[in-house]
Amino acid sequence: MFEMAKELLRQLFKKPATNEFPAKHAPKSVLKLLEKVSKGKARLNPPIPVPEKFRGKIDYDRNKCIGCKLCIKVCPAAAVVFQEKERKIKYICSRCTFCAQCVDVCPVNALTLSNEFLIADYKRD
């Protein structure tokens, strides 16, 4: 028990282990805070960079795609759909599990990994 108390006292003088929020306290108005930041009156904590091998949202280069359907064959979540008319694919981000198997398999590098992770949206496509 004393060991825990000692450890807790030690922790009091250490920096928090968690990553910092952009602002220390929740602002009354986010817009006003952003305005202040743009004028240089307030400062936001910078975002933590994503790790080197991070697998984020997948970028699709429509022009490079040759419609070989290999990505559809390996995708575990059916996040890639084939469009018969154009002979191209459609990438559905809301189904994606970000395993990057399609990126590994693409013969023409039409699919690439991005660092984007803020993908919450009101629309499905």
Partner: peptide, 29 residues
């Protein structure tokens, strides 16, 4: 609960190493 938070703080280190391998914290792929 203090012991719980202390242990979970210690756990963060291993999650950082997993990130080095896979880019994710938990599900590795």
């Amino acid at each position: 609960d203090s012991a719980m938070h202390y242990t979970w703080k210690a756990r963060e280190k291993v999650l950082d190493v997993i990130e080095l391998l896979s880019g994710n914290r938990i599900t590795k792929g």
